[in-house]
Nucleic acid binder design. Structure first.
Length: 713
DNA sequence: TTGCCAGCAATTTTT
DNA sequence: TTGCTGGCAA
C-alpha cells in the first residue's frame, strides 16, 4: 500500500501520515494541496482503519468538492461514496433539511440567492418609505451575519448613518428583513451556517450525531473562512478529548487569502496553532506548477506582506523563460498588444488573461475577437441567474413553498397576464396590513379587486402546480409550467427571445440530466440549483472552451492554472485598487491578488500596464503599480509593442519585424530543452504530441501542453 | 400596463 | 463609457 506515499515528496508524505489531533497544512500555490488531502484520507482508511462514514471534507466551492470526490473515488473505490465531501453550505443545508424544525424552519423552506435577498430588501425599504438604495444595506446584512454577531453589537460600532439612513432605522431594516425571511419560509446563505450553529448549540444530541459522521475533519482553503465558518468548524471539531486534540486538518495558504471583503478572516489560519494548541504544522513549499523565473517574481512580491506565515516556494521546473513586462501607452494599445501576442502564440486554450475588474474585459474581448481569437468569458452572468431561468425556477420555488412571497411576486405577472403594478400593489399592501401571506390574499382577490378574473385564473394555475410539485420530477414540472402559462410564446415576442428560449431549453435539459444523475424531488433540484448558482455555464458558442482564450478576474482565477498567463492593468488605482489604498490590510490583500495571478502561470507570464486609461468615459493617467516596483528588475524583461525582442520600451511604435515562432511548431531534427529531461532532439511531432530523443533516457512521448519544451538553437 | 428616456453610479463576490 | 432605476407619457 505504499503507493499512497511513493508518489509524494517528503513534506506531503508527512502530512498524509498525520493521524490524530489538529494539523495545519500550509500549502503554497501549486504544491499539490488537493493531492495531499486526497492521499491523507485514503491513508486514514487503509492504514488507520478509519471508516469512510467518519470522514468529512469541507470545501468552499462545488467545483472543488466535485474534484475531490472524483479523485477520492479513483483512489479508494466504492467506499468513497460513504465519505462526506461537500461545501460548507451544502453540508449545512443537508443538516437543516433533517433537523431544521429544531431551529424553527418549516419543512419546505427555500434558499434565497443574492437576487432574492435584494428584492426583499427593496420591498422593505419601500415599506418604510425610504428612498435609499439596497446596496449599503446588503453590505450591512452580510457584515452582521458573516461575523455572526448580533444586531445590537453591530449597531454599537456602526457609523451613525448607513446608506444615508440613521443607524437605528437601518437596524429596523435588518429586523424586518429577518422577520420577512422567516415568514416566507426562506433562508439566505448565511442563515444556513448560522442556523446550523444555533442547532448545534441548542441540541447537543444532534451535534453528537453529526460528530460521529465527522470524526476526521478536513477544511480546504482555510484562509478564506469567515468568523461563522470558523465557529462552525470549531463546534464540529469539538473540544480536546483526553490528550489528543480534535482531529481537524485545515489546509490553506495565507498568501492566497483574497476574500477579506466577504468577511473572510486571514487570522483564522494565521492563529490556528494558538486556537488549537499542539497542532502540527506541515509546509508544502515545493511548487510543481510554475517555472523558476515565474516563482522568483511571485516570491519577491509576496515577501513584502507582513500578515503571513513564512514560506518560500521552491520550483521543481528550473529555469524557464523570463517574465515579460509590457508598457502600453494606453489601455487600447495594451489590449491590442495582448491580442497580437496571443495570435502569435496560438494554442488559445492554454492562455488566460487576468484582470482586476470586470470592466477591463471589454477592450480585451473586443481586440481578441477582432483578431479572430475565440474567447471564453468566465464569471459573466451565471446561467441560473438569467432572468428567464430565474422566472421559471420561481414557479418551482412557489410550488414547493407557497409562502415564498418574493418568488410569488416574480411570477404573478410573468408572463404578462393582466396583473399590473397597481393590482400587485393592492395585493401586497393587503398582505402587509393583515399579516397574511400573499398567496392567501390572492385567494380572496374577489373581494378586493374590481376585476379579479386574472388573479383568480392565476390562483387556479398555482393550485394545479402545487399538486404537480408533489407528483412529478423537476423536468416534468417545468414542462407543465411552460405549457400552462404560454411562457414560450411570450418569450418569442421579446427582443432576445430566441436566446432566452434556448436558455429555457437548457434548463429543461439540466433538470433531466440531474434526474438521471442525482435523482430526487423538485425540492431537491431547487436546493442543488440554489447552491450551485454560478458554477454551471453551458457554453454555447462558436468555439469550444478548450480552443478559446480564457478571460476572467483575478478572483475567479484562484485555484486554476494555465501554461500562459497575461496579467493586465498593473496600475495604481487598479491593482492595488483605489478603494484599497488606505488600509494596510486591504493593500496586502491586493498584493495577494497579484500573487495569485502570478502563480497561475505555468510557463509564460506577461505583465502589462497602460499609462492612460479611460475610466467611466474619462481619460485618466496612471502610474505603474507599486507592486511592479517590488520586483527586482533583473527578473523582468521589458518588451516592445511587437513582441518578444529586446526593443527599448520607448520604441513601442516602431514596427518590429521578427516574429517568433509560436509554441507548438516543433519539427523533426530540432534541438529542444525539457525542464526535467534536459536537452534532446525532436523525432516526430504529431497533433499535440512530440516525440523527443533524450540522450541516455531514450525516446519520450510528450504532451506539448504539459511538457514545457523549449527550442534551443 | 407598457415603454421610453433622463439621471445616476460605477471593486473583487467561492455559497 | 455602460447599465440600471424611477418617473412619466402613450
Amino acid at each position: 500500500m505504499d503507493d499512497l506515499l511513493s508518489s509524494l515528496n517528503p513534506a506531503q508524505q508527512e502530512a498524509v501520515q498525520h493521524y490524530e489531533g489538529p494539523a495545519l497544512v500550509v500549502a503554497g500555490a501549486g504544491s499539490g494541496k488537493t493531492r495531499t488531502v486526497v492521499h491523507r484520507i485514503a491513508y486514514l482508511l487503509r492504514e488507520r482503519r478509519v471508516y469512510p462514514g467518519e470522514v468529512l471534507a469541507v470545501t468552499f466551492t462545488n467545483k472543488a468538492a466535485g474534484e475531490m470526490k472524483e479523485r477520492l473515488a479513483r483512489m479508494v473505490g466504492g467506499s468513497a461514496s460513504d465519505l462526506w465531501v461537500s461545501t460548507f453550505h451544502s453540508a449545512a443545508l443537508r443538516i437543516l433539511r433533517v433537523y431544521g424544525e429544531y431551529v424553527g424552519l418549516k419543512s419546505g423552506f427555500v434558499v434565497y440567492d443574492d437576487d432574492d435577498q435584494t428584492t426583499l430588501l427593496k420591498e422593505i425599504l419601500k415599506e418604510l418609505g425610504l428612498e435609499a438604495k439596497p446596496g449599503p444595506f446588503r453590505a450591512m446584512l452580510d457584515r452582521i451575519k458573516n461575523q455572526g454577531r448580533g444586531l445590537s453589537e453591530f449597531l454599537r460600532e456602526a457609523p451613525e448613518f448607513i446608506g444615508g439612513v440613521p443607524k437605528e432605522l437601518a437596524g429596523e431594516v435588518y429586523r424586518k428583513y429577518q422577520a420577512g425571511m422567516r415568514a416566507q419560509g426562506a433562508v439566505d446563505f448565511n442563515d444556513l451556517l448560522l442556523l446550523s450553529i444555533q442547532l448545534f448549540e441548542e441540541q447537543p444530541g444532534v451535534l453528537a450525531k453529526i460528530r460521529q459522521r465527522a470524526r476526521f475533519i478536513h477544511v480546504d482553503e482555510y484562509q478564506d473562512t469567515n468568523p461563522v465558518q470558523y465557529r462552525l468548524t470549531r463546534l464540529l471539531a469539538g473540544l480536546a478529548e483526553g490528550g489528543t486534540g480534535p482531529n481537524l486538518m485545515v489546509v490553506g495558504d495565507p498568501d492566497q487569502s483574497i476574500y477579506g471583503f466577504r468577511n473572510a478572516d486571514i487570522h483564522n489560519i494565521l492563529d490556528f496553532t494558538k486556537d488549537y494548541p499542539g497542532a502540527k504544522v506541515f509546509r508544502l513549499e515545493e511548487n510543481y506548477r510554475s517555472t523558476e523565473s515565474i516563482l522568483q517574481v511571485a516570491n519577491a512580491v509576496i515577501e513584502k506582506n507582513a500578515l503571513r506565515l513564512e514560506k518560500t516556494l521552491r520550483s521543481v521546473k528550473a529555469g524557464g523563460e523570463p517574465v515579460r513586462l509590457y508598457r502600453a501607452p494606453n489601455a487600447r494599445e495594451e489590449a491590442a498588444f495582448v491580442a497580437r501576442e496571443i495570435v502569435k502564440l496560438g494554442q488559445y486554450g492554454q492562455i488566460a488573461v487576468l484582470y482586476r475588474t470586470n470592466a477591463q474585459s471589454r477592450l480585451l474581448e473586443e481586440h481578441l475577437r477582432r483578431g479572430g481569437v475565440p474567447v471564453r468569458l468566465v464569471g459573466a452572468v451565471g446561467f441560473f441567474e438569467r432572468r428567464e431561468v430565474k422566472d421559471l425556477l420561481a414557479y418551482g420555488r412557489v410550488a414547493v413553498n407557497p409562502l415564498d412571497g418574493i418568488n410569488l411576486r416574480r411570477i404573478l405577472n410573468t408572463p404578462a397576464r393582466g396583473i399590473g403594478a397597481s393590482t400587485v400593489g393592492k395585493l401586497v399592501e393587503q398582505a402587509q396590513r393583515t399579516g397574511q401571506s400573499l398567496f392567501e390574499v390572492l385567494r380572496q382577490a374577489e373581494g378586493l379587486l374590481s376585476r379579479p378574473q386574472p388573479v383568480q385564473a392565476f390562483v387556479e394555475l398555482l393550485e394545479e402546480l402545487l399538486e404537480a410539485a408533489f407528483e412529478t420530477g423537476p423536468a416534468e414540472f417545468f414542462e407543465r409550467v411552460l405549457d400552462a402559462t404560454g411562457f414560450r410564446e411570450a418569450l418569442k415576442q421579446e427582443t432576445d427571445g430566441e436566446e432566452r428560449l434556448q436558455n429555457i431549453e437548457e434548463l429543461l435539459r439540466a433538470a433531466r440530466d440531474w434526474e438521471e444523475e442525482e435523482g430526487g424531488s423538485l425540492s431537491d433540484f431547487l436546493d442543488s440549483v440554489a447552491l450551485t448558482a454560478k458554477a454551471e455555464e453551458p457554453q454555447k458558442g462558436e468555439a469550444p472552451p478548450e480552443a478559446s482564450v480564457t478571460l476572467m478576474t483575478l478572483h475567479n482565477a484562484k485555484g486554476l492554472e494555465f501554461p500562459t498567463v497575461f496579467l493586465v492593468g498593473l496600475e495604481e488605482n487598479l491593482l492595488p485598487h483605489r478603494n484599497s489604498l488606505s488600509r494596510l490590510e486591504d493593500l496586502e490583500e491586493e498584493r495577494r491578488l497579484f500573487y495569485v495571478g502570478i502563480t497561475r502561470a505555468q510557463e509564460k507570464l506577461y505583465l502589462s500596464y497602460a499609462e492612460e486609461r479611460e475610466t467611466y468615459g474619462k481619460r485618466e493617467y496612471s502610474r505603474p503599480s507599486r507592486f511592479l516596483e517590488e520586483v527586482p528588475p533583473e527578473l523582468l524583461k521589458e518588451i516592445g509593442a511587437f513582441g518578444d525582442t529586446a526593443v527599448p520600451v520607448m520604441a513601442y511604435t516602431r514596427p518590429e519585424p521578427k516574429p517568433k515562432p509560436s509554441l507548438g511548431e516543433f519539427r523533426g531534427g530540432e534541438r529542444v530543452r525539457h525542464p526535467r529531461f534536459g536537452q534532446g532532439t525532436v523525432v516526430a511531432a504529431l497533433g499535440g504530441e512530440v516525440t523527443v530523443m533524450f540522450p541516455g533516457l531514450g525516446l519520450k512521448k510528450l504532451a506539448l501542453k504539459f511538457a514545457g519544451l523549449e527550442k534551443i538553437d
